[in-house]
Amino acid sequence: MQTNPSTAVGAGTTFHVAQANYYYGSFLAVSNVNLDIPERKITAFIGPSGCGKSTVLRCFNRLNDLIPGAHVEGTIQYRGVDLYDKSVDATELRRRIGMVFQKPNPFPKSIYENIAFGARINGYKGDMDELVERSLRKAALWEEVKDKLKESGLSISGGQQQRLCIARAIAIEPEVLLMDEPCSALDPISTLRVEDLMHELKEQFTIVIVTHNMQQASRVSDMTAFYNAQATEKGGKQGYLVEYAPTQTIFNNPAQQATQDYVSGRFG
């Protein structure tokens, strides 16, 4: 069912997670996660609310560090380096591992400045105008905004804002793109545009996407991890990884009954 934790980290593995437990304070939020996320593929995390998909995702760029009391046990390696090792600088890590959030959250500044900010703070030495254009082109947004780069990032539509956030993330040339339900606030047409974009971007980046939309997972991803949640005695929810396999397998021939029930819409 799950990948064997003893498997050596092979070439082409971006993240290696073994026996990982995620805590908020003393509360065990997600338990016993084992997965190897392949390079330049799209890996989808699916599962009901509260199952810990986002928690696992946010550990990959250590954004959970910002939450007081959040910590992890077990192994989480990024290209063979332990993410929570003392020698790893979270700020540098986040330059390499970009993130797109659930709700489009462009900075309340100009479209140009939204892209330039990340490059500037990370000491980008090249031509800024060129970088802005290249990033917006990659995010399939350039044609729509090239005449209003000085306008606010909040003045464009929600779908455009989300693509701006993607452009902003890829402008600093990350190696990985984490996407936390990137289309949940978008209409179907904008969603399709973002999905097309993901297919193009996976040539260059490893993508991990959390989604509530099962069709989306089956459309875009190569690998799928299904998480589930069980109620604890205190009324909280504790997440765990049920099954991790190629997307084809998860949707057509899952090993677990719970996965079968979920992907066919019988619960969740």
Binding site: T91, R94, M99, F101, N105, P106, P108
Partner: peptide
């Protein structure tokens, strides 16, 4: 909104850079 802080930090900005700029 905290989403603004997360956006800044996720781009590799330090806390002060995020606070100062956004």
């Amino acid at each position: 909104p905290s989403s603004l802080r997360q956006a800044g930090m996720a781009l590799g900005a330090t806390r002060w850079q995020t606070v100062r700029e956004h």
